[in-house]
Design a protein around this nucleic acid. Structure first.
Lengths: 204, 204, 204, 204
DNA sequence: CATGAATGAGAGTTCATTCAT
DNA sequence: GATGAATGAACTCTCATTCAT
């Protein structure tokens, strides 16, 4: 019994080890370059080994993608340290989200843009990190609603609005679709202005 | 003289023919599957033929992508037929955008999500269809601002806000990221509610 | 009768016109890049047209190659203008050969290194320019022999020796095989020294 | 420990096996026909397998090319077995070089005529087989100079002269440029005569 | 447990050549 | 006489995946 458990634990630990390493090359080299071969080379395991811990590439991607959510979760959590005002919490988390996206574009890509890993999701435990992030967002919003600080009263609507807005903002930027803006404007500056404006507007 | 013109016209038509056909497989089979070979198979031409009409794959993708913008442009234009109220125009165009995205998800993917053809874009004439779409959006917004109907006063800020919101909304949906919403809610219904709420909020 | 002759003449002239132009791009762009497509593009004829004047690529290459021999012939001829001393003639022609090779490496390549056009040669008239060049060399050598100025008495042996030496010298250079020489030596300088030494040695 | 070594050895052996096989088609079918697919077909492996042992085609060509130099080196070495007289050594090596070229024309082609693998060479260890061959030649020549047996006193000049002559001789032959000699003469016989004459001339 | 070795499938691209018009 | 259009046959190379060991 104890032996079996230990083996299980060891297996999980090794999986994590591989994953951590894989995440690194993923971040450094990007989605396109992240072939199984490249990953296994970097972590100094054989490609075949990866298949001992992950069913296929999708599952590996999904696992990495979960690591991303963990990181995002940590940053989103600490973003509101010491902040009481729900609106201010919302603002901080907005900036934290933007910051995460720009500092980890390849990760953001995997987490929110790529098709690949999401197909695996169906069979996953519901309470993944991705969900927790979403929950976090919902909590902040709920506080705002409870304190009657925002003009949207429905939690789901508010969550969808805010997430959509934030995701659109960063993903259009990451995918270079904001080139369309006149060359005179500083796009990054404009994004911040836009974010602030949206907060102002959503406030009661 | 007439002959030359006819030949020229035929060449353009054939290019369009290929393009249309290619667009079909593209739409039906998706971005990933759209290899040169798959395309040429479908249109029953040899792979080499494609290179008579398009310099490389990127140029072909770009052309398809322009086709998409043309279609979107047409739909965005007709969306406001007979509508005078700027806010109502904005609403109609929001729905038109959503409709386009859901009816042509692979196209939307290519136009706004993929990295691929955007790199080619740099050397294109500025006044591409993509720009015109953006211009259209700006015009509607400008009318709203002029009529003092919305709470955002800066055109760029408003354009970025609204486009980001809309893009986030449809792209998270297309990429299945709205699964996170509780199974009880009808996601599509929620999206409409969200869109309506945002319009309500942005209004003066 | 007259008509037929005129047509024939016109055909030959056009052939020459195409050829001259093709030679240019050949020289400028090199053997590897000289595809039929590239050639026809540059001369502003269709690829198909080339096949009206040349059976296949080999024949075209052969014709260009003959143009090269014409040029070489001209340079080899004028190289000895006003020179009486046969040995001095030999030296001048040696330098002329080297000069030609370095100024027209792609042409030299085609004329003396490539396999391609030589296969066509079998069916050509014997008295091509290539032959004339060879004859020229033989004449100079014969003068040297007649005047008892060189130590080789057999014409064929002398021709083969000298040509081999010269070809080896320039072709090893063109193909970068002289890199093996210590980096301290100026290869070009060494080649001249080598050429002079060989002349000195071959002299009685 | 032993296992690792065995595996390593097996890997090297397999590499050699592939190489040997590849060399064969190479020799039999020539440089132009030596595509990766042709090679893999012949050795009954998939094209992808080749890339497990060689980075790309250039590296494979380079390896074959090194094999050629090894062979040449062996033949050039054994050519002077039991020979003391430096001049006689030079003669024997001249014949060995010719013999190698005629028995392995495609190999010779790759080693001394083609552009292809030489570009890869830059990053190779300096002491490749190609260098050793050159060194061998230099040693023989140096002996001749030291014993005051040849009329050229500078090592570099002598090396360049002799190599150029030999390379010109065999490469013009390989590329069929000696057709120009009158049909009555036996070209091979003439080459031998030429080689002998050159030796005679270079002697003090 | 771990992997070395191998591969089938497929990617984009180029080229000499043909032929109906 | 000239060509636009088309193509078959190649090319090199990459990748996720498998399986005997």
């Amino acid at each position: 019994m104890g032996i079996i458990e230990r083996k299980e634990r060891e297996k999980i630990e090794k999986r994590l080890l591989i994953l951590e390493a894989a995440k690194q090359i993923f971040i450094e080299e990007g989605f396109e370059k992240a072939s199984i071969r490249a990953i296994s080379d970097r972590i100094e395991y054989s490609p075949a080994t990866i298949y001992l811990y992950f069913k296929d590439k999708n599952e590996l991607l999904f696992a990495i993608h979960e690591l991303g959510f963990e990181k995002l979760l940590a940053e989103m959590s600490s973003a509101i340290d010491g902040i009481e005002d729900p609106i201010e919490q919302l603002r901080k988390r907005g900036y934290a989200y933007m910051k995460f996206a720009f500092e980890n574009p390849e990760m953001y890509d995997l987490m929110f843009i790529q098709n690949a890993p999401i197909d695996t999701l169906k069979n996953q435990e519901v309470w993944s990190c991705g969900e927790q992030n979403f929950t976090l967002l919902c909590e902040t919003i709920q506080s705002c609603i409870d304190a009657n600080l925002i003009r949207i009263k429905d939690l789901n609507v508010a969550a969808m609005s805010i997430w959509s807005f934030m995701h659109g903002l960063v993903s259009l930027r990451i995918r270079n679709r904001f080139n369309k803006f006149n060359g005179d404007v500083d796009v990054h500056e404009l994004m911040i202005q836009t974010l602030e404006t949206m907060i102002a507007i959503v406030k009661v």
